[in-house]
Amino acid sequence: MDRTDLLLLGALIAYILALLQLAMSLWWDETRLRRWLILLSIGAGLGGHTFWLVRAALRFGHLPIISTQEVFALLAWAIAVYYLILRRTHRRADVLGLFVLPIIALFVLVALVSTGFTLLPEGLEDVLRMPALPLHIGFMMLAYAGFLLAFLAALMYLLQERELKRKRFGAIYRYFPSLSACEAIGHRSLLFGFLMLTLGIGMGIILLHRSDPIFWRGDPIIVLAFVTWLFYLVVVHYRLAAGWRGRRAAMLLIVGFLATAATFVSARLFGHIL
């Protein structure tokens, strides 16, 4: 492990501490102190995390988006940023941390154990130095974060709905937010993700336009990105215009996220850069 990786290790520990604090505040009592400690832990983790990303960018002279390590670290970073935003805007969003924080911690762990070895595809240096690229990547990562949280909120909605329909109540009933809170969190995250995706794709088009078409020609990732965007466009439209709510709307968010995740994974497998 590199010495700079200590920053990432520190971030990992901070995220895990935040998770423990959150579990305690759900199990016992949500005191002001615990709430503050959770924010402090996430904030500290995010600080170390950001610093690590900046160090990596300076060291390689380009954005840290090539190696598995970098991509996972960047994704975890975007999720943490959006989770913090969501906590500020919706008071019941904290419970999502039970799922989000382990995912963040897992991604950071993957980043820690995988190598920082970077093999730069030839001819890509120019693209990597384009000012639109960091924006493109940043927007895309935040879009994934938004869709991930929308997915988790939808999952919580379905689980809570199942308890209410079955009339048999357990821990889910007790600790998960109400249907309307899950719905609101999911809706907000969907809109955020869609906005970010739109901006990200816009930046992507600028990049396509300016770079050598040889790298992009016939790339399925571009088609898939547009399909994803269209899908979410339809979902957003029906939610806003036709009032799609509840169970089916939640299932759409789940399907949408799984499709997006599949796109992302296949893109990584086939060695494309998103």
Binding site: W28, D29, L164, R174, S178, S180, A181
Partner: peptide, 25 residues
Amino acid sequence: TETAIGTEAVSVSSVAVELARKIFE
């Protein structure tokens, strides 16, 4: 604070309110 002894409703009408809160927040 350390047990859930007083957290749940124990009358029919308060259970109705509790359920309403789990649906509508």
